[in-house]
Design a protein around this nucleic acid. Sequence first.
DNA 1: GTCTATACGAGGATAGAC
DNA 2: GTCTATCCTCGTATAGAC
Lengths: 217, 217
Amino acid sequence: MKNEKATKKPVRRKLADIRKDNSDQILLVAEKVFAERGYRGSTIAAIAEEADLPKANILYYFKTKEILYKAVLGRQLGIWMQHMDAMTVDQHPRDALRDYVRNKIKQSKDHPNSSRIFAAEILHGAEFLQEKLRTDLKDQFDRTCEVFRGWIAKRWMDPVSPEHLMFMIWSSTQAYADYSFQSSIMLEKPEMTEEDYEAGVELITRLVLKGCGISLL
Amino acid sequence: MKNEKATKKPVRRKLADIRKDNSDQILLVAEKVFAERGYRGSTIAAIAEEADLPKANILYYFKTKEILYKAVLGRQLGIWMQHMDAMTVDQHPRDALRDYVRNKIKQSKDHPNSSRIFAAEILHGAEFLQEKLRTDLKDQFDRTCEVFRGWIAKRWMDPVSPEHLMFMIWSSTQAYADYSFQSSIMLEKPEMTEEDYEAGVELITRLVLKGCGISLL
DNA sequence: GTCTATACGAGGATAGAC
DNA sequence: GTCTATCCTCGTATAGAC
């Protein structure tokens, strides 16, 4: 066994574990900072301070700021897409769409930072994310559009454009993360409540279902 | 022959006009750069280069980068809100909402930069815009919600939440500017066409009207 | 593996010539 | 009103002690 002498820790932890814990912690903090201030607005110093570590330590784990940012993006892509997959052509669109809208808004509530990072990234041309959009997201998008087409073929919903329906659901649900600062100002409260999100779910579900000719019951 | 007044412009123009022309030109270019790269990502050098002027000239007209950015924001707020005002309680919601959606998407198409600047600003906490949101936009928002309530009272539409309906219309129409990079990737085209915007108008109008119990005819 | 000190470059802002 | 040269701060990244 090598390097046994090197460990000063009383607890026996593999170096790989320490590394993973620390880099997970950094990723978590970086996600928050990037979401709040954007890629260029975020400084390594700010991330370091938030993580309560010296600057150099951040760069020990992630060699450059760009590498760290891409790591954050990559980690979030799965979270961001995970619910699209749940819709299948065998389900009735009433249930599938209702669940999707609910889950997507719940995600906006629980992980607003993932959503904001993606939104900012796309807004500015998806410089770092373009390739993943063209592959991962595009595949998922096509599969989901295919499900919508299946429902239309079964006469379970009206023949609306699957692509634009998807855009509408994405944007209106994401708004509950991306524009929540604005929404809470309009609603005159310090921040959105559970009831506000619930009202959003209800309204969007209603518009989608009735709009596509699917009865609500 | 030495052109005796070569240093001066041959056309007699007031200094005030020169100033206005130049600052207008700078604002136009700055709008583009800020939209593409965000506030912190934009450099005065980049704006100067795009405007084909030296750096110092930009700062002669706008003392600081922040002042320039706020000028851009202020200039766009009107454009961004102008169509909300057009909806009145006397109109039938079928016509008013259809026109609003159409105009809002047209705006996303014609002025994508205004929309992107606002979206980025709000995403990151509306640091520079918060006051204007609390006053100008909030007032307009309240008036429009009041119009919706009037329609509901007249039984012209179902009793849906005016606030969340507004959020839904804002976000889904704005997406045609903010997320157009993503949308065009999903649609597998270099950029969105006239027909794509038209399909968006149609889908959103349909969902809003049918969703609120307003007949389409 | 952790941290201090520092090199180095980018970018905002200013002085002052023309 | 226009522009060159320059200052200076801030932020990334590295070297090297512990």
